[in-house]
């Protein structure tokens, strides 16, 4: 050690004796100039991951199916990822090189998209009708619209890792393309592992999107007070009586009123709402009453363990708002009972 240190010292002395700089004086200005030139070029364009050196499409496809825990038919999965725009693009590339009749062993996913779309629609509606038997059909349709929108499907598709694997002309990948690819993946899953696995896939990835959301935010109830009294009238209950249950800060900017709705015949509370004016509080109380009737409380928990055979038939429909009454409700197993069925069958 000592010898090494002494040699270092000697070298240092020699260096200083020769009047040499210990660092590069040109380095900082050069880097500064490079940075200036780079900035003048504007922001860097995004590059597709496939242009990287470390990219193996086959391994990526293999990892994709393993990540989801599904067994896909490899050809079907490749087909599901191939968009029409990619095939057109490739053919044009070959033509520009001089090949008169370009041959590509690729089939686009158009059929799969149609099939998957139909399947998703069916499963989503059946699941919602099974777990929310009291919710009117209009609400089911609105929830279904949200779950099968391009926005939701592309979000799911992005987060299972499709955007880099899709073969398409557009980059960055458009939302519609991602949603279509998710549909075609589900169709590919139906063909490779059967409808039950595909239904579980839809349940795990698409239906979980409503897991922590308020259901009435998707279905805007118009005139809730009138709706509630109409529904109660069908069960021969007179229109509910609103009462001021509490108020604070009256005639101030932070006024708060609390209105309860009571049935006239047996004086039972059926809804409780809070608002900054009495009218708003009354409306909120009516919405609360409807929530309780429709079985959609704010803290609803869905049973995410139902399988295909536990769902209701696709021909079954919930009652419409215009004919909804407690008498007309069909006798269906509730969420809790369905949960019990699942627990006992798995044991």
């Amino acid at each position: 050690m000592l010898s090494l240190r002494t040699t270092n010292c000697v070298l240092k002395v020699l260096k200083t004796a020769r009047n040499e700089q210990s660092f590069h004086r040109w380095l900082a200005p050069t880097l500064r100039e490079l940075k200036r030139r780079k900035d003048s070029q504007g922001p860097e364009k995004p590059v597709h991951r496939k242009s990287f050196l470390e990219w193996n499409y086959d391994s990526e496809i293999y990892a994709f199916s393993k990540r989801l825990g599904e067994d896909f038919n490899n050809d079907l999965l490749l087909k599901a990822f191939t968009e029409r725009s990619y095939i057109i693009d490739e053919e044009e590339k070959q033509k520009s090189v001089g090949i008169e009749q370009p041959t590509l062993n690729l089939i686009d996913n158009k059929e799969l998209v149609a099939k998957g779309s139909e399947f998703i629609d069916d499963i989503v509606k059946r699941y919602l009708r099974t777990v929310l038997p009291r919710l009117p059909e209009e609400g089911i349709i609105e929830l279904h619209k949200y779950l099968t929108s391009v926005e939701t499907l592309s979000h799911v598709s992005y987060h299972i890792g499709t955007p880099e694997l899709i073969l398409c002309a557009d980059f960055p990948v458009e939302k519609l393309t991602m949603a279509n690819v998710l549909k075609s993946i589900i169709a590919a899953l139906i063909e490779s592992s059967g409808e039950n696995r595909a239904a579980i896939f839809v349940r795990d990835f698409i239906l979980t999107q409503i897991a922590d959301k308020d259901l009435l935010q998707f279905w805007d109830l118009q005139h809730p007070i009138k709706l509630l009294s109409d529904i109660l009238a069908r069960d021969n209950i007179q229109s509910p009586e609103p009462r001021l249950v509490g108020c604070s800060g009256k005639n101030t900017i932070l006024a708060c009123f609390r209105v309860g709705l009571y049935t006239p015949h047996n004086k039972q509370i059926i809804g409780l709402g809070v608002g900054e004016t009495v009218d708003i509080a009354h409306e909120m109380a009516a919405i609360d009453g409807l929530r309780q009737l429709f079985g959609t409380p704010e803290n609803i928990l869905f049973p995410y363990n139902l399988e295909l055979e536990q769902l209701c038939a696709s021909t079954d429909k919930n009652l419409s708002v215009n004919e909804w009454s407690q008498k007309n409700l069909p006798v269906q197993p509730t969420n809790f009972e369905l949960h019990q069925v699942k627990m006992t069958s798995s044991c």
């Binding site: 990540r67 987060h159 897991a211």
Partner: peptide, 18 residues
């Protein structure tokens, strides 16, 4: 958590390592 991971099924979020 991304995509309600774990409500439906768990997906390992690491897709690639170099």
């Amino acid at each position: 958590v991304p995509l309600q991971n774990g409500i439906g099924r768990y997906i390992c979020q690491l897709k690639r390592v170099t």
